[in-house]
Every structure is written in structure tokens, then in C-alpha cells.
Design a protein around this nucleic acid. Structure first.
Lengths: 331, 331
DNA sequence: ATGAAAGCGCTAACAG
DNA sequence: CTGTTAGCGCTTTCAT
């Protein structure tokens, strides 16, 4: 900027004014300054800018564990939409596993993001308190925070699971296998609760041996499904707790040639769900809307709103495609 | 940092030393400083750090158009792996459409990333020259740059397309439909070239009416496929130029009940390709390796290597699953 | 082993 | 309309 000023023969402040569209520069000098900036390939240093304007980097940080691909993309898209309206850039960092989450979040904070949206990977987020107290609004997505009071935007995991289970019960299924990731994960726990609620409502006993958890990648979900089908009295229907599990289960059923015999309802929609044979009935949720909601909450807090942190729960929708409507086989 | 120093009763410099693991602080003061930092919830301001250490923000920028979900995730993963080894944080921004690409890239540069990896959305990147001259290494991925000399890491689009086409020709197909996005996109153009080369090699004439381009989202690809199948002499096989097109085509064939009659080979693998009926034969490439390669090139330049910018082309692999092995129907 | 002072590039707050 | 000065929080350099 100094260079530009020197090149034009004006003061550094005028350059700054032009750059920020402030009043008080004659058209003539403005022209010359713009020309010089172009010639010199000048780029404002936003580090210095952010440093000076104590706390306005116009950047929000998004930390996301590398996991569900679809979730990732839709979420970024939703957040981006809102952030752009607000003139902020969304920078996404992968938080990876729980172990690396902390350093990733700290790295974002060190770079002085104006706000933080976190899809939690780890179990403990108390270390974010100082940032929050320093005025950085933090919104959690998909799982509530632990060790810190902050807004959370969640899906109605339990409700969706209830709907999925009720749907299968309605077709007469009484032995419903469940395949999911680690039960300690919030969404998984909630989904299991919803499932059990629906069973209770119909007075169907919950059979623990039909539930296989800890089946994180689709390969393990496939193995879990094969195991279930090897039981003396295998389930007649399956409820898979996320799309990796759904894909694994679909693969297992396919390998057994039972795709058309065992009913399947999965939590989470995925792009090719309608192309699988039979098309997969799922519990779908609007992930972009989750992103938009989280971003809105964040910007509201940035603008000074400061209600008590709360949870926003978004609804799910049952998408009927075929796999979930397979009837109980005749005995 | 001032606060920490005041709290301990030492100079700001000692705090800095502790923070950076430098020599010259007694164990005793070090302890007290660390304690104070914890108590006060101190976080170093990396803006100021980056400002002072003119050009070491330990951050690399990745700009990616929101498009191919699978590509996105694998690429980030590959880049992250290398960047982490180098102690850098990867920050990803969506460049969206071509129009917004420029502002996104500039926003990253303004934040003084140490290097930039770009999956181009637009056609023109001359505006990045000043950054490059200022010493920011820039690596392009998947498509070569225009208007600037920089490294590019590409897939052997033409080779893959040749393999796909040769595979179909080998089964006797002579009427091969092609469905792809806009031909002006580098990868699309290359893939079409490869396709035509393979046809020429077998002296099969290229029939323009069997090629439908500009079919970007899967919905349009589906429409294009339906159109092709309505021709007086429809193709007996399809080659789809990316996974959106593959999914669209699969949907179309399914809706016509012709999934098992028309051969299909798609460029790009996708997670559920094996679950579709019939499983989809694809040209696959190692996207994580693309990411790793791009990151390595970038860090090498950051370390001072400065050979002439070049292209690295990574190979593809034909993955046979069934849809591509459907024979030509008897007349 | 420790500290004081200068300055990275910018903008806020005042002059002129 | 334009310029001067100070200072954001850190690291670098040079003293002590």
C-alpha cells in the first residue's frame, strides 16, 4: 500500500480510502490510485486489516470430521449461502478424528475467525470456552456440545428413527435388525432411543441380539449384516442408522441374494438410493437447511443477539422407495 | 500476550519464547508462563504472527467448485495428509461458479495463504499472476490453468476414455452413445478426444448424433439419455463422461427397463456403483493421490525448488463390474 | 537468561 | 478533500 501511495505520489491513507470505498477522494486521484494498484498487482493484506480492526476478519471457520461426504457438501453449501450474504468467507478445515479436532479448532481460532461452526468429532469442547468468552460465537451442528454452553442445530434423530421403525412395524415386521455406528455418538444414541420408543408404542419387545453397533465404515456394517442374517431367527427387516451402514447392509443383502426379501429402511438419504435394487426407503433430512440455520444463528450472535444458547431441532421425512415396503415373508 | 507477561511479571518476549519453544527461558519462569496462559485462556493471534513473519501463515488455501462430492472429499483428504506433515493447515473455500471463483481466490490470497491449490471453475486465471510473482506457489488440479504458467496435476482423461471406449468396442458395440457436461471443460474435451481416438483405432466411424453434451446435473444427463434411446437407431452402449452423467444415465435406463440391455461405462467411480443393477463398470482414478501430488509440488516450491511449471498426469484404471460387459443384442 | 525497541501492513482518530 | 500519527499483537534484532 505504501508502494502504491509512493507510485501515485499520494498518502497511504488515500489508498486505504479507495480500497474501502470511503468518501473523501477526488475522482482524479482515485483513478490514478486504481491504476497504480492494477499495475503493481497490489493486494491488500487482510492479516494486517484483521489485526487492526480488532475482530473483523470477515471469515468464519467450519470444522468438519472427514466422514459423511454428502453431509459435508450440503452443509458447506448451506452455510456458504448465508455467509456470502453477510460478506464473509467460509473456510473449512477437516477436524479428522477426535484427537486432531482440538488442534484444528485452535488453529482456526488462532487465525481469528469471526465465528465457528463445529461438527463435533470429539467428546469434549470445554477448551473452546476462552474463545467463546472472547466473543467468538460458536454453533455446533448435528451433535450437541459437551463442556460448553453453545447453540446447537440438530436433526430430530429420535423422531426419524421412530418413523422408520413405525413404518416397518406397520408392515407387520416384528424382528427388526439395527445396524449402526458407536452408540456413544449422540446421533446414534438418539436414533436407538427413537427406535425403542416406537417398539414400545406397539408393545413389540426390543431384542438386543438384533442390534449391531460399532459398525462404522460400510465394510463393517456389511459384516454385521451378514452376521445378523446368520442368526437362527434372523430379522425380517433392517433399520440402518446412517448411510454408510445402509450401503453396507445393502451390499450384504445383495451378496446373499436377499435384497428383495428383507425390508430395509436407512437413516440419511444418498444420491443413488433410488438406483439400488430395490430402491432404498430412507429417513431424509435437509442438510443444507441445517447449514443455513447454523450460519444464521452465528451471524445473529455476531450482530449482538445473545439469548441463552439453545437447540434447534430440524425435522426428518420418510422417503418411501421400495426397500422399506417389503412384507414379512409367509411362514 | 501482554496480559500474560503482566500476570507473570515478565517481559512479553519471554512469553513469546515459551510459545515458540525457543531457548533462553528458565524452567521456573517457563512454568509460570504456561500456567498463566492456561488461566487467562491465552491464544496466540496468528494474524499478528503472520504479519510479522512476512510470509509464513502455515496455511494453504484450497479452492474447489461445489460439484463432484466424491472428488471434493478425497482430494481434501490427500492434500491434508501432506500438509499436516508440513505443519500447515488446509483451509478450503468453495469457489462456486466461474463468476465467484475470482473473488474467492483473491479472498484466500488476501488472507496470505502460503500456497494455493486450485480446482479451476473459470476459464481465466491471469489475475493470479501477481500472487505467484509474490512467491505464492499455485498448483492447479484436474484442469490446466489458463493465462498463467503453473503446475498442474491432471488425470489421464484421454487415456481413460480410450480404455472405456476400447472396452465397449471389444464387446462388439459399434453404436456408442456419449453423455457428458460442457465440452469446453478441459476434462470433458480430453475425454471426448480419447473416445474418438479409440474409435479411429478400430476404424469405427464417430457418429455425432450419438453424443450429447452440456448435460451437467444428473437430471439433464437422464434427459439426454432418454433422448438417445428414442433415436431411430439408438446406441447399444453408453459412455458417460462423469459420475453425475453416469447416475443420470443409469436412472434413465432403469426407467425404460433397459438397464440390462444397454451397456454402460462411466468415467469416475462412485461409492454405490457396485450396488446398482447391474453394477456399473467405471474408469476410476486415485483422487487422494492427485491431492497428495499437488500438495507435494506446492511444498517443494515453497521450499525453494523452482523448475519450469509442468504437468503431472496420473493414470486411470478400468473397473469391471457388469454394466460395461453387456453384449450387443442379436438383431 | 531476559528485556527494550522497532516494525510487519493496515485502519481509526484526528488534524489540516 | 487529504495527510499524520498511533497502535493492533506479534517476532526480530540487539542490548543487557
Amino acid at each position: 500500500m505504501k508502494d502504491v501511495a509512493a507510485h501515485v505520489g499520494t498518502s497511504i491513507k488515500s489508498v486505504s480510502r479507495v480500497l474501502n470505498g470511503e468518501e473523501g477522494v477526488s475522482e482524479a486521484t482515485k483513478e490514478r490510485i486504481l491504476k497504480a494498484m492494477a499495475e503493481l498487482g497490489f493486494r491488500r493484506n487482510d492479516l494486517a486489516r484483521g489485526l487492526r480492526q480488532s475482530d473483523r476478519t470477515r471469515t468464519i471457520g467450519l470444522a468438519i470430521p472427514q466422514a459423511d461426504t454428502r453431509f459435508h457438501d450440503s452443509l458447506v453449501h448451506g452455510i456458504d449461502e448465508i455467509a456470502r450474504q453477510q460478506g464473509s468467507l467460509v473456510l473449512t478445515a477437516s477436524s479428522g478424528t477426535a484427537a486432531r479436532e482440538r488442534e484444528t479448532l485452535m488453529a482456526l481460532c488462532s487465525r481469528r475467525v469471526d465465528g465457528l461452526i463445529v461438527v463435533p468429532a470429539g467428546e469434549e469442547h470445554a477448551f473452546l470456552r476462552p474463545e467463546q468468552q472472547a466473543g467468538v460465537p460458536i454453533v455446533f451442528v448435528d451433535r450437541p456440545p459437551h463442556g460448553i454452553a453453545a447453540d446447537a442445530v440438530l436433526t430430530d434423530h429420535a423422531g426419524g428413527a421412530r418413523d422408520a421403525t413405525a413404518h416397518l412395524l406397520r408392515q407387520g415386521h416384528r424382528r427388526i435388525g439395527v445396524i449402526g455406528a458407536d452408540a456413544r455418538i449422540f446421533s446414534v444414541g438418539e436414533r436407538i432411543s427413537g427406535h425403542r420408543e416406537a417398539l414400545r408404542a406397539e408393545k413389540v419387545p426390543y431384542q438386543r441380539e438384533l442390534t449391531r453397533l460399532g459398525a462404522e465404515p460400510s465394510r463393517e456394517a456389511m459384516a454385521a449384516c451378514l452376521e445378523l442374517m446368520r442368526l437362527e431367527r434372523p430379522p425380517t427387516a433392517l433399520f440402518t442408522l446412517n448411510n454408510q451402514c445402509t450401503i453396507g447392509a445393502a451390499r450384504a443383502l445383495r451378496s446373499l441374494g436377499k435384497s428383495r426379501e428383507i425390508a430395509l429402511v436407512g437413516f440419511d438419504d444418498f444420491e443413488t438410493a433410488d438406483l439400488i435394487d430395490p430402491p432404498v426407503t430412507v429417513i431424509s433430512h435437509d442438510i443444507e437447511e441445517i447449514g443455513r440455520t447454523a450460519a444464521r444463528l452465528m451471524f445473529e450472535r455476531m450482530a449482538g443477539h445473545s439469548p441463552a444458547p439453545g437447540r434447534t431441532v430440524l425435522p426428518t421425512r420418510l422417503v418411501v422407495r421400495g426397500s422399506g415396503e417389503i412384507p414379512v415373508p409367509e411362514q
